[in-house]
Computed example of a mutant assay.
Amino acid sequence: MSEQRTRPVVYAVWLIIAGVIGWFAAFQLTVEKFALLENPQEALACDVSPFIQCSKNLESWQGEVFGFPNPLIGLTGWMAPIVVGVALLAGARFARWFWAAFGAGIVFAIGFVCWLIGQSLYDLLVLCPWCMVTWAVTIPTFFATVLHVIRNGTLTRNEKAQQRAGALMVWVPLLTIVAYAVIILLAQLQGLDFLGEMAKLIF
């Protein structure tokens, strides 16, 4: 289904929602990083328990793998989905190279998130609340973007493949839930009582 024949309204709205949520999570992590630098001995607001906390992640080398705090990547990176989403709602049409570049950025994001998930579960042995918010919106954004760049003709000119990708969009929520379930299962197997800690926070 060519992007020229239909405006991807639902996808555009999701990009804006995900971008705002992701940016807010990155902003909160940045604030927490400043607080940690100012008072290294003080517990952060997001330090809920030994299993659910931000401090250990922010203080680790994984928290600044490129030489600066990871949240700064989010503060800049999440602006792209917001801008693209707003532009799509306004009727903008982008060239194939633009969608290829945007898709590559999303692929980098999911790859980085998967690496961070692995580091949290198997090295740091903690789950960062604001990091998990970022994971939560990156995963469906990845699924939706992959399908979108197929259906709009960026990755293939085959109309049947484009139509199938468009039809598969309705499965993005289910794919996302499955991905969440896998992360929760891995956390439980690793001894991180994710479900128990979340229940304490809720109840």
Rank of each mutant, 00 (worst) to 15 (best):
V172L: 11
V149N: 03
M79I: 14
A179F: 13
T30A: 13
L195G: 02
W171P: 01
Q119C: 08
W135H: 11
S2R: 12
E42H: 01
E42N: 01
W78C: 00
A179Q: 10
Q119V: 11
F143T: 01
K160V: 05
Q4D: 12
V170E: 01
T176P: 04
I139K: 04
G77S: 02
R7C: 05
G118M: 03
F68Q: 00
N70G: 14
F98P: 01
L168N: 03
D123E: 15
S55V: 12
P71C: 11
A100G: 11
N57T: 09
A179Y: 10
A100W: 08
V107H: 00
G166H: 11
A45E: 13
Q190D: 10
L72C: 07
F98A: 12
N57D: 06
L44T: 07
C46D: 08
L147M: 01
S49W: 09
G74A: 04
I52E: 02
W23K: 00
Q163L: 13
Y180W: 13
G63T: 05
A45W: 14
V137S: 01
Q163A: 12
F94H: 09
V170W: 11
I139M: 14
P129E: 14
V170A: 15
T6G: 06
V20Y: 03
S2A: 08
R157G: 02
A45Q: 12
P71I: 10
E64F: 14
P8R: 04
L189M: 15
Q119H: 06
K56A: 11
R151T: 05
A12H: 02
K160E: 15
A136Y: 08
A12Q: 08
L175T: 01
V65G: 07
Q62S: 09
L185G: 05
A165N: 02
V126R: 05
Q62C: 10
T134P: 06
A12G: 05
I52N: 05
K56S: 09
A136Q: 02
T154Y: 03
M79T: 06
F108A: 13
T154K: 01
C114T: 14
A144N: 02
N152P: 06
G74H: 03
V9I: 15
A87N: 04
C114Y: 09
L121S: 12
M198D: 00
I150M: 03
I184Q: 03
E197S: 04
V178D: 03
V86C: 05
T6V: 10
T145N: 14
W14K: 10
I202T: 12
W97S: 12
F27I: 02
Y180G: 11
T154F: 02
R164W: 15
C54G: 14
L195E: 08
A80H: 05
W135C: 08
V126W: 00
E3Y: 10
T176Y: 15
A45C: 01
R5A: 15
I52L: 08
E32F: 12
T134I: 13
W130E: 11
P71Q: 07
P69H: 12
A43V: 07
C54K: 14
S120Y: 00
W115I: 04
I184G: 00
G103V: 06
Y180C: 04
